[in-house]
Design a binder for these strands. Structure first.
Lengths: 339, 339
DNA sequence: GTGAAAGCGCTAACAC
DNA sequence: GTGTTAGCGCTTTCAC
């Protein structure tokens, strides 16, 4: 029965060994490398395990073998569906080879990220997945020294020194550039931007502005929402944008949910999309196809990002080197109705 | 530098002890209970720790103390934002007392849930958070025997035997009943239901149907979408509903994102909401306020659920009993424009 | 194919 | 306040 201390006596490996009439190592092998045992022995041991309800203590195993079969990941927040999809596919990829995920949320704070990494190192995790490439120089140095496999995701390091170990992502700046080319190419000249106030969003804004300028469009108003950027804050921001730039005719939103909120606000303002105002999303989430009008957006490979990150880690954990240390997953415009 | 094996030599506690000229325990105390040490000693030890770049091995600590400071949670998927918010607040609550979260995703499969629980027990996690209350009898028995603190969330057990240890949630069936009362009370008589094909959604449908019948409304058509229920599948389902029940005038959607997709489809069908079709959401996610028309919905306390689950666990881990073993967080109708 | 010995790096209990 | 002793429950050699 449940008790307050939360612990009951459990069978240990030595108990199983005794019950089965074999040595400790044999039980260990029955659990970890059954093919190294004679079929009969294996059967006897398994019966004993079953009978005693033995559950191997993975903590003790980790200590002895110095492999934890745990991978840690740090994301700003999983409430943003954009990150949760990457985490989901990462979890699944890792699960296939018996690894589990320890999850940390940094709330977009570098200090919290560093603190999380520190305890993850203390837990001797087998690998680490980070979000973004804007880690501090000291954290980068720390991780390089630690020597464990690390994958940076959701962006690509600009310089060789920003690459800790491995990376899988895409250039956020180039994605912003593509957004500007797309909107301007379709005839919209007075542009706005709505996004979260965080690193990757800012990089996209950078690219968006610089490409717009290059194409002769200098009026780009931006509204940055402090994370978590919720949909119900978007209406007011769009109003701001229009107030600042009355001839606004195109908005780039930093995820499809924000873009959807803009769609609704346009509906309220009786401004037909895209005739009166074009809306470009980001991410190609499922809402983009469901929306009316359907959202044009920039597709990125969120699930693939998690999967590739997991594979790179697993490759390294098996002692090999992955084919590429830096994978650019790219992105593409999906033209629908809103632009 | 990074190496393929992923490990470099690291300082151990005994190295620090030697460097600081103290014993092992003193270093352990400097790390875990600094207030038990003389200020001078502490300073010396800390200097040594700093100098050697010592990172305590938490795995060894866990083994010795049999407390892992890890709590595991199983959710169907974190891609559903509805679960990720609970996980987020749980993570934060746990972090405040130095616990971390090991995350498992069951993909709505009972077998996967049981397998995850098994390895979590093997890791000797300090506590467990589960989604829903429909665990198999054998899993329930297993966990009761294991004797570790367990919190079931997102529903409330119907019977005493379905309660493993602690629970925080609400009655999904009653929430469905409330939805029916609300729609019928506002004059809608031909009802439909769109939700995911999973346990909690089904319970809401149960309640929805039975209350509707009680109030004299027998025509309730339901469309269940196999998880993950994506927004872009909703349009076709609404069409189905209308085909089956041409006079349909009210739809209850099992989360606000699905409801939003219905809103868009209504727009396409040129059926004004709520005049031609009423739409009731579930969850009160931020999209509900952003939508046009704004969504009426049933508010539940997702974040509070994670927080309370964390607190209950922490209370038990500190050796106390929580005030209540079973917390009903309830729910409420939020009347906006769509009904 | 199986076993014996020697740790993994820390904490708990008790002494001083 | 600080130190000594004795494990925590496994895996890893290496021997047979």
């Amino acid at each position: 029965m449940t008790n307050v201390t939360g612990s009951i006596s459990r069978a240990r490996m030595s108990d199983v060994a005794q019950a089965a009439g074999v040595s400790l190592v044999t039980v260990s092998r029955a659990v970890n490398s059954p093919n190294k045992l004679a079929a009969e022995t294996l059967a006897v041991v398994r019966a004993a395990i079953e009978r005693l309800g033995y559950v191997p203590n993975l903590t003790a195993g980790s200590l002895a073998s110095s492999r934890s079969r745990i991978v840690a990941a740090v994301v700003p927040t999983i409430s943003n569906p954009v990150f949760s999809e990457t985490i989901e596919s990462l979890t699944q990829t890792l699960a296939e080879s018996g690894h589990q995920l320890l999850l940390g949320q940094s709330a977009y704070s570098a200090a919290q990220e560093a603190a999380l990494v520190e305890t993850f190192l203390g837990r001797r995790v087998d690998g680490l997945v980070l979000t973004g490439c804007n880690q501090s120089a000291s954290l980068i140095a720390r991780l390089k020294r630690a020597g464990l496999p690390v994958v940076q995701t959701w962006d690509l390091p600009d310089t060789a020194s920003a690459l800790i170990d491995m990376a899988v992502g895409f250039s956020n700046r180039d994605a912003g550039r593509l957004a500007a080319r797309h909107l301007i190419g379709r005839g919209f000249r007075s542009l706005g931007f709505i996004g979260a106030e965080e690193e990757r969003s800012r990089r996209r804004l950078d690219g968006f502005k610089s490409e717009a300028a290059k194409l002769g469009v200098r009026t780009v108003a931006a509204e940055l929402i402090r994370p978590p950027a919720q949909m119900d804050q978007v209406g007011a921001r769009l109003q701001q944008l229009v107030a600042r730039q009355p001839d606004l005719d195109g908005v780039f939103c930093n995820n499809d949910l924000l873009a959807t909120a803009v769609l609704f606000e346009c509906h309220r303002m009786r401004r037909p999309v895209p005739k009166s105002l074009a809306v470009l999303g980001f991410g190609d989430q499922s809402v983009a196809r469901a929306a009316a009008p359907q959202l044009s957006t920039i597709r990125i490979r969120r699930a693939e990002m998690g999967e590739r990150a997991g594979q790179m880690l697993l490759t390294r954990l098996s002692g090999q080197m992955p084919e590429a240390q830096r994978i650019d997953l790219g992105f593409e415009i999906v033209l629908r109705e809103s632009t």
